[in-house]
Amino acid sequence: MTVFLQATFEGLSLGAIYSLVAIGFVLIYKATDVLSFAQPALAVVGAGIISGLAVDRGVPFWLALIIGIVFTGLIGLLVERTFLRPMVGEPVFSVAILTIGIDILLRTILNKWIGIDPRYLGDPFPSFGNFGSFDVSGVTLKYLEIAALITALVLIGILGVFFKRSKYGIAMRATSFDQEAALAQGINVGRVFGLVWLIAGILAGFSGFFITGGFNTLTQASFISALRALPAVVIGGLDSIAGAVVGSLIIGLTQGYIAYYQLPLESIVGFTLGSGFSLIAPYLVMFIILLIKPDGLFGTKEVERV
């Protein structure tokens, strides 16, 4: 039971981090029809800013965290205004490829700075308790992961209220529903696009911190962790925020349970799925779900007249 609870907690924490990246993917997709491959790069750029300020410049960590996340959001906004705004009306495939280019550009600049050695972010979480963890009835709970869970819940709640109650939230929903109709109603669609990238950047900044915080460290390969949020988005449905959250939790829990149960089970049944199965499993889950529900669990079902 302890192992089950441990795996569940770690899976949920992982899922919470994935959900921050995944919501960014969905927001951009809903508003612009473009799947942005620049999200993982934004996540690690945010972590780089935090590390640079807190560790290299000696800025107090919490201030560095705020600056890093806000700055990541502004980079998202800048990317939209400079690279993507001119692409409005172009084929979405072209724009998606452009986001890959942005991803490479941002990571190349960041990698030059990261250099040879892993970089840490200077956060205080690992200094709490036992290397950043405490024990509850045999289950090890980690402060950083608890923080990730709480942050994800709070941000999702804020976004929910924002979309329902605020003027710009409603404008974003209208734009995602029908851009031309939104324009006709006087909504500044360009501003909505910018706002979407700003929010997605902020979410990426948070996820970047949780992916590389503690002793996870920031390296040139850290972006791959953020990229794993993509199957979560596909599972949940490309245009559903709730789906992104559920998909992320499915992916996180899948990884968590397989990490703890695969090898013990294999030794019982005498059959091996391979050492890297826990990382392949999310994609397997994605394939199975797409076979049953091609639009994802919460994706909008499309009807095409022929």
Binding site: Q255, A259, G276, S278
Partner: peptide, 20 residues
């Protein structure tokens, strides 16, 4: 525990140290 480098799962490696 010897997967290819691209498939190395830290959670699984930690899980092994904890469970075995």
């Amino acid at each position: 525990y010897a997967p290819p480098s691209t498939e190395f799962d830290v959670a699984q490696a930690v899980g092994l140290l904890v469970t075995q």
